[in-house]
Design a protein around this nucleic acid. Sequence first.
DNA 1: CTGTATCCACTGGGATACTG
DNA 2: CAGTATCCCAGTGGATACAG
Lengths: 126, 126
Amino acid sequence: MATINIRGDIREATCAEELIAMRDSIELFSGKWKLQLLRYLSNRPAEKNLFKKMLGEIGGISARMLSKELKVLEMNFLATRTVLNTRPITVAYAITPYGQTILPVAEALVQWGLEHREKVKATIAS
Amino acid sequence: MATINIRGDIREATCAEELIAMRDSIELFSGKWKLQLLRYLSNRPAEKNLFKKMLGEIGGISARMLSKELKVLEMNFLATRTVLNTRPITVAYAITPYGQTILPVAEALVQWGLEHREKVKATIAS
DNA sequence: CTGTATCCACTGGGATACTG
DNA sequence: CAGTATCCCAGTGGATACAG
């Protein structure tokens, strides 16, 4: 994935801009962690979201992935990274106001996913 | 990707249902084509969306991918597949009413992607 | 015409070991 | 503590050839 999530290749005739924008979004949102991390941060706006704490609280993620994904969020202006004056150093992350603009989209995905599970279950049962 | 897009492994303590639902959605929407195909079908509700025609009009997709992706959409009740009585046979696809429920989400992704491009461009320029 | 089968290059992401 | 480097495997998607 391009770290700075912008796509340059414009080719299709119909609604090229929209298609590319949609692919930008999909690309940025794809993968196991980024949306989940943003939701995590948004649910704890006041707290110090330390790397270590996130690592412990978010089940299943490795330090490598947490670091990588947070860096991508930071490069896309969705999260901030703050090095604290501790020894040894600790790092706190927070969602940006801009990052909060994806939350409604994320909630839409959650909502649709929940309904989709019901739909599939109901259809299979019948 | 699981063809029938439902996930069974519930483990996380916090909001497990929501997380899993979100991942279901992300998984289903990920990849280059599925959302684009749904939008294509939704923009041509009255027409016969023949495989051949789609193959020609959707830039860059191969027959293999078109077939595979449409099959996934069909298995998730998002699109229908109709074999026509022609010689040789032709096949028409259509979005289902259920499939249309994702369109608002897709539009949200498009909208956010468009704004993100502006944001990134503006930030880089400054 | 509408797919499926095969082959292949590329990427995402886990495990682990290591550095500042 | 926070992050990087390396290795590895599974999955995605393109090209091509083939089948019903």
